[in-house]
Amino acid sequence: MVFTLFAAVIICTGAALEGDYYHEQLLTFIGIFTLLAVGLNMLMGYAGQISLGHAAFYGIGAYTTGALTVHLQWSPWASLPCALIMAGVIAYIVGKPTLKLSGYYLGMGTLGFGMIMHVLFREWTTITGGPNGLVGIPSLSLWGLDLSTGRNYLYVVWGCVLLTFFICDRLVNSRVGRALRAIHYSEQAASAVGVDTAKAKLQVFVFSAVVAALAGFLYAHMVMFISPGTFTFLASVKLVAMVVIGGMASIWGALLGATFLTLLPEHLSVFADYEMIIYGGILMGVMIFLPQGLTRGVLDIYEKFRAKRKGTVED
């Protein structure tokens, strides 16, 4: 029901914007960032884990499809699954060792990973085009229909958003979503009822990476040119900020956060100068109120309290 309404809003907005190229493109960008934010939100808001290198998966999606279509002249539709699988496999490799432990390990792991990927995008010139970027990425078309026009591409992107929303909504209200929220509250208690916590966390991390890669794919075929500057640490921080602003553990919140942080620099030119400071401030808030940070802190106090209680009872 909500989704039908949402789809109607998108179609109407698209129709209303006919010919208004600037706003069509802006709305398309909002869609791409919404995808990124909603994927990351599954990880942060529901499972209580953080990824500080999410722009890397965005970049993996973009560069995989870019390299395959530019260097090997693949059809974008053939490179799409490769881009998604690539991000999924890499997320699995990064997440497997770090998610076995509870705490900030995924945050630290992805922070390092994001930086390594950025260097790779910049330095692996033969594949990525280096600092100058990768030029000549083809636009999308399907059965002779040109998808690259402003309105069509807007529909493609928002169609993907709608589909992802739908999947996330199903996921959140299923066994998996309950397990994630349980893990968020207490891994130990979740594991006691039979949830394989490491596996559940890994699954949601891989999911969020695949969604980011989808966003990367859409981005690459929209602007038809990608460069390392798009997939920096700052971009990762911006994504985290979107999730936090929108409110964690809310699918629609991701839409809000993405919209807000995409529109803000458009309408507030001073914003560009203070971008880093603003995201930094938001991130600081995250660090302070971060779910597992809090849980960990409360657990520590609880353990201390328990030890004290045991001590006094036994005396």
Partner: peptide, 10 residues
Amino acid sequence: PEGRLIFPPL
């Protein structure tokens, strides 16, 4: 479990 360990926010 001891102390119930239910999930309060759920």
